[in-house]
Simulated assay, not measured.
Amino acid sequence: MTAFQQAYWLHAPEHPQNVTALPINSTTIQINWVVPTVTNGIVRYYIVVYRIDSNTDLMELNSTNTTALVTGLTPFTFYTLHVLAVTVARGEASENVTVQTNEAAPSAPLDITAFNVSSTSINVTWQPPMIPNGIVRSYRVVYTTGSTAADVTTTNTSVVIAMLEIFTTYQVQVFATTVAEGDGSNIVMVTTDEDTPGPPGDLFVNEINSTAIVVTWEEPGITNGIITLYEILYSVGNVTTVSDNDNSVIVGITTNTSYRHVIGGLDPYTMYTVVIRTYTRIGAGDLTVF
């Protein structure tokens, strides 16, 4: 050791004693210590040195007290800290203490996707947050249509949501929760599948002449999808129903907005029963009988 080094350490204080640290919140640590046993002079201030690990830069802050708040830290992260006293020279470093900051709300879940499973259910999947800021305890999936919103909670990264409205578009967003709920994911849109439609409404049959009638109707009150076909069945006789398994005649009408069809070539002075049903891509709905 050179004469300069000997003189330096002669006036440098020993290391602070009894260093302790505890987290105040997710971004702040409080560190406390006791004055060195041997100060070798007047302690002008203390230097708190801290970092995350050996691969990160050392950071410092000064304090004239035997306590300090280290702020601006990363949530749910281990920090290693030590303290040294300064007189006319920097003293020995104390022993290291390691402490973890508290948890905080996470960032948003990633890569959310949604697709329909049936006419009343959807499947939603996502990836955990890139910055969890703690232990993700649950996810909340919010699904909205119009002014109606609902949610479901799960510990998984996927969920099937059932009992939805048929052929309805939903906005879906996912939130992760640690000790607090974080930001919402991107919003995705998903539409439940089509289903068979309800029966057409207001079916009327009127005579045009002795061999022709006109059939009119209204669109089903519940379409459950895109109407692709109206089908009229008629049969001789006053019966309670007509099906395509008996001697009925079937007339297929592609969807239109007139809701009107003329049937000709009938037998004069003959009673006919007429029914109509509606189709979507999924199939036929219930019959309406006149």
Rank of each mutant, 00 (worst) to 15 (best):
M1F: 00
E14F: 03
T20V: 14
A21N: 08
S26G: 13
T39R: 09
V49T: 12
E60Y: 11
T71H: 01
T74H: 04
Y79K: 03
T80V: 10
E92Q: 06
E95A: 10
E103K: 11
A104H: 08
P106R: 02
V117F: 13
I122Y: 01
N123S: 15
V136Y: 05
R140Y: 01
T144E: 06
G146L: 11
G146P: 09
V152F: 01
V159S: 02
V160N: 13
L164Q: 04
E165G: 15
I166F: 09
V172H: 00
V174K: 01
S185P: 14
T191M: 02
T192H: 08
E194S: 12
E194T: 01
G198A: 09
P199M: 15
P200G: 00
S210E: 15
T211Y: 07
T211V: 10
A212W: 04
A212K: 09
A212E: 12
A212Q: 12
E218S: 12
E219C: 08
T223F: 03
T223K: 05
I232N: 02
L233V: 08
T241R: 15
V242C: 08
N245M: 09
G252F: 05
T255K: 12
S258D: 03
P268H: 13
P268C: 08
M271L: 14
Y272W: 08
Y272K: 09
I276H: 11
T278K: 07
Y279F: 14
R281L: 15
R281S: 15
G285I: 15
D286Q: 12
V289H: 11
